[in-house]
């Protein structure tokens, strides 16, 4: 695992998230994601049996794994971990569209862009490197999405992860995701 200057990750508060999908629309608009394709999506999980039902709603995307199988399996180096932010990025010019990354992602977070390369959430790399919030974080009406540097113990994300109980998705795949669900 490479050590990076920063380690940007994301938390989604499942208690605050109402599933309004504003984040998915903001993402589409900010990143010019074509219609019919999604970098972000909203999940709704219902557990139990009536009347003892529990519902959990959360917005999800690429988990920007530390041990990213998409990066390891990319034959051309198109998928890589950005040295500065520690996020997983795709260099379009190097991508052949072989889809090994899609087959290796336990979160199915990637899709084929109509141009031919494989695309996914960049954690708004162009915004966070300029000190801005990600598009999804900006528009969230309940402030359920928090993006920040996990290397910085004073960041809001680090504090939330110290204070609140959280879950991670599909950890059995050994990917060390940087995506956390506050529960």
């Amino acid at each position: 695992m490479t050590r990076t200057a920063h380690k940007y990750g994301m938390v989604v508060d499942t208690i605050a998230c109402v599933g309004c999908s504003a984040c998915t629309l903001a993402c589409r608009s900010e990143n010019e994601v074509p219609e019919g394709l999604s970098r972000r999506w909203v999940n709704q999980e219902t557990r139990g049996s009536f009347p003892d039902l529990k519902m959990k709603i959360w917005s999800e995307s690429c988990q920007h794994c530390e041990n990213a199988p998409c990066v390891k399996n990319c034959p051309t180096g198109a998928s890589f971990i950005d040295d500065f932010t520690g996020t997983v990025q795709v260099e379009r010019d190097l991508c052949t569209g072989c889809k090994a990354c899609m087959a290796s992602c336990p979160y199915d977070a990637r899709y084929i862009h109509p141009t031919g390369y494989v695309d996914k959430c960049t954690l708004c790399h162009h915004r966070i490197t300029g000190g801005l919030e990600t598009a999804c974080e900006t528009v969230c009406p309940t402030s359920a999405i928090v993006v920040g540097d996990l290397n910085d113990p004073g960041s809001e994300i680090s504090q939330l992860l110290r204070k609140r109980k959280f879950e991670q998705r599909r950890t059995a795949a050994g990917t060390r995701p940087k995506f956390f669900l506050l529960v």
């Binding site: 999604s38 999506w41 199915d108």
Partner: peptide, 10 residues
């Protein structure tokens, strides 16, 4: 589990 994601081939 329901999801709003409907990416082709995914």
């Amino acid at each position: 589990l329901t999801s709003t994601r409907l990416n082709p081939h995914v």
